[in-house]
Design a protein around this nucleic acid. Sequence first.
RNA 1: GGCCCCGUCGUCUAGCGGUCUAGGACUCCGGCCUUUCACGCCGGCAACACGGGUUCGAGUCCCGUCGGGGUCACCA
Length: 528
Amino acid sequence: MNDVRVRFCPSPTGNPHVGMVRTALFNWAYARHTGGTFVFRIEDTDSARDSEESYQALVDTLRWLHLDWDEGPEVGGDRGPYYQSQRGELYQRAVDELLARGAAYRDFATPEELQAERDEAKVTGRAFVYSRRWAAETDADAEKFAAEGRAGVVRLKMPREGELVLNDLVRGEVRIAWASEQDHVVQRADGSCLYHLATVVDDHAMQISHIIRAEEHLPNTPRQVFIMQALGYELPAFAHLPYVAEPGSKNKLSKRKLDKYLKNRDFAELVKHGDAIAERMGLAVDADVFNPVIVDFYEQIGFLPDALLNYLLLLGWSLDGEREEFTREEMIELFSLERVNRAPASFDPQKLLAFQDRAMQQLPLKQKTARCLPYLQAAGLVATPPPCDTGPYLSAILTAAGDRVKMAGDVLVYDDFYRADDALVYDEKAWDKRLVKPPAACDLLGRFAEQLETVEPFEAAGIETALKSFVEAEGIKIGDVIHALRVAVTGKAVGFGIFETLEILGRERSLSRIRLALARVAAQSPTS
RNA sequence: GGCCCCGUCGUCUAGCGGUCUAGGACUCCGGCCUUUCACGCCGGCAACACGGGUUCGAGUCCCGUCGGGGUCACCA
């Protein structure tokens, strides 16, 4: 390991968002690429908003994606604790130091008084600059204010002239006037400290060398640099990533705008697909989590983590504009901050799906089987633990289904292979179209079933040969019996190859299903 | 509104002054394959925001305009 140390430091206030994960990915890739250290830190400085569930969701998401961290919660490290809620003493010392050096002051303004100043600035059309009217210059002032029943906070005493020149690793030189910054609060009246202070103190204590974060943080970089300088810290390098935008627009992607995104056709289709899988599993859909903006959504419907990562990697980074597929190892080998784009990138559900599709096609059968099995179990189609012939049977289905199974949850559309013959669910439209309406359908089906009795071995190739000679002898088209056969045997209008379907089902079940279907049609139509 | 960032096909992007009649990918539209569906294959549509400079030459450099966005908390 060298001295490159980067960090991913979310606050546990909700379910991890794809943009957040993209930031984690870039940090992780940079750390692994440089042989540096990837630190995971929990910024839980706001007890009113932080939650244990959110923390757990963060850990679960990172684990699912295999974005492993070298230091942080659950793994420890030399510079812990990695929860800001446990680092209060460090922050207190920093606040004292800031105060002692005149870089911060105690302030006793009430929220109402502050708001009044803001309103006034707004009315007069000027930028708001706090008057520092309730700033306590001395201890005596502080006592006086306190005696009035005012609560004191600590504010940064920001410079009001000059500018900060920042050399951002992705955006180049950025200049921001110090005066455009406010006297931000760094410590609340109850002694707890705020993010800006905490993050700076921790980055220093944890010897972070590169701050790689989303560009939303660019505007508040000056106040952080101010703190670093006031405390005599060496400045880390900054790299502000473009944010991830909504599908088809440049607005920042938000998990709270699901209703709006649903108007986007591609987005709506993804959700619909997910809902269908959830329904087959009997999963109660929680709109907060079952949302394509939330990473957990992909885990639930059976995405491959590497496919999501590969897609996210290309949202703001490119190698050469030609190559788009990268394994985890290749991401590490090829990632660089120099190739990070400056403009925000819109999240495109279709393209994500294309990556998932491709990754699934390349997944070895054994792994594909292992990923799909839990879905069948969740849907109650396969027992837990699974019977011993489950693996080969599922693998046969998956082989026949080929690339039709685009995500693990898709395996549930082949539920008919797991149902008892007399418990098949028929697609009524297909039933009428292929079995009831064509006058000869049942007759043909019945007579082909007789042929099926003697096909030996009962395998796809032989069944196909039998059908072809049957069709030739009858002088009909192959479609005249295939469609009826499919509906009779699977209950569905669509599916993978019918010959493979019959082979997997086996002779007994195939014949049984055909007989059941024939009987059902007969029972349906009054004998003429 | 202040401050800041950004601006190549619908979307993700390549392009670091000439090889750009602008390349790749996803989507979309045709066609082929075919027992349905999916895959696959072939082909097609489609972009340098605008205006000034600089230069022999600008998508590429500079300025301006316009447009889009981020951020302005005792959230992170």
